[in-house]
């Protein structure tokens, strides 16, 4: 398989109805001295070709664990209990280490949290990108061809070609982020996972990066999974979104739909606690309490200790993630009680 040039990538045909990645009932925990931490519990969602999906939630809700699972990059104390992660129909969890290694970056690439430190300080940026090409396309490209490809990658993210010969510490924060995106595109993957792509960037740069990612996604027909704790980011760039809490997926659906009509109490409270510049002044409703200890998660619905709508049933039975119409799924017994938000989200 040869590397697809950047020009070829634009104009790739995508069928938005075809599923690219299917996460099917993933259950995973970490083993620590004190016991087992239930980090991901029955999470299911589907990413279609050319779709941008967001996963939002507090720190420790399991979204990063899900992301790392897709590339099987979890530390050695992580255990998969059940579930499948199907890419183009093939279960990634069943692959051997070597098979998985071959697919990393080539099929799924990742832009990490704190991309500043994704770079090894002692090598040039260009050499680190070249490394990926040497690993996945060994013997298929000459040095010249590699150089041309990398220059095009940099051009695609708006970086000058000379920067390829520089060291990471010579880049500014925003430039480093762009370079990471360029490297992620190097093997023309079908899916990119962006884990907190804009944390630690100032707002102006944040905006630029997000616009960049959106453009790349549309031009190259790529699917992107955005992981963030910042709802605003998710709102801006995703087509569908999922809300995670304490290792469970509690709501999933069309981004505009979930924002306008959140049906899970947690989502509702989350949105209500986010102030808006343009909307009318309203009282903030901060979430009380703290996320549960996943060593010993609450019985029934994991959110019930903090939920204003909780009843006894919530403490005893876990609500399933049910479709309430139009692809909008909620895991709550009392979703009808969740009131409408006063204003629709302004994009």
């Amino acid at each position: 398989m040869t590397v697809i040039s950047v020009e070829d990538m634009s104009g790739r045909s995508v069928d938005p109805r075809k599923p690219l990645l299917e996460v099917d009932d993933l259950v995973m925990h970490y083993k620590i001295k004190a016991g087992e931490v239930s980090a991901v519990d029955n999470v299911s969602f589907t990413v279609h070709q050319g779709e941008a999906v967001g996963l939002v939630g507090e720190s420790g809700c399991g979204k990063t664990s899900v992301a790392l699972s897709l590339l099987r990059l979890l530390p050695s104390n992580a255990e998969y209990i059940s579930g499948q992660i199907r890419l183009d129909g093939q279960d990634l969890l069943q692959l051997t280490d070597n098979e998985m290694r071959a697919r990393r970056w080539k099929d799924i690439a990742m832009v990490f949290q704190g991309a500043m430190n994704s770079w090894n300080p002692v090598y040039r940026v260009g050499d680190q990108i070249k490394e990926v090409l040497d690993t996945h396309f060994r013997g298929e490209m000459t040095y010249d061809e590699q150089r041309q490809h990398m220059e095009k990658l940099f051009a695609a993210v708006g970086l000058p070609a000379e920067m390829l010969d520089r060291y990471p510490h010579e880049f500014s924060g925003g430039m480093r982020q762009r370079a990471v995106i360029a490297m992620a595109l190097a093997c023309s993957p079908q899916l990119i996972i962006a884990d907190e792509p804009t944390t630690a960037l100032d707002v102006i740069v944040q905006d630029q990066i997000l616009k960049e990612l959106k453009r790349i996604q549309h031009e190259m027909g790529m699917s992107i999974i955005y992981i963030s704790h910042d709802i605003a980011v998710i709102a801006e760039v995703t087509d569908s979104m999922g809300v995670m809490y304490a290792g469970k997926l509690v709501e999933y659906g069309d981004t505009a739909d979930v924002f306008a009509r959140p049906k899970h109490p947690y989502t509702y409270l989350l949105l209500k606690s986010t102030p808006s510049i343009t909307g009318p002044r309203r009282q903030l409703a901060p979430l009380e309490g703290e996320p549960p200890n996943l060593l010993d998660p609450p019985t029934g619905c994991r959110f019930h200790p903090r939920c204003p709508f909780a009843t006894e049933k919530c403490a005893m039975e876990e609500p399933p993630l049910a479709d309430i119409g139009g692809g909008h799924r909620v895991a709550c017994w009392h979703y009808e009680q969740v009131p409408d938000l006063e204003e629709a989200l302004v994009r």
Binding site: L71, A102, R103, W105, S118, N120, P121, T135
Partner: peptide, 12 residues
Amino acid sequence: DYILTARAKGLP
């Protein structure tokens, strides 16, 4: 961090 990145890149 760059070690995690290196693993993600599929390096041996």
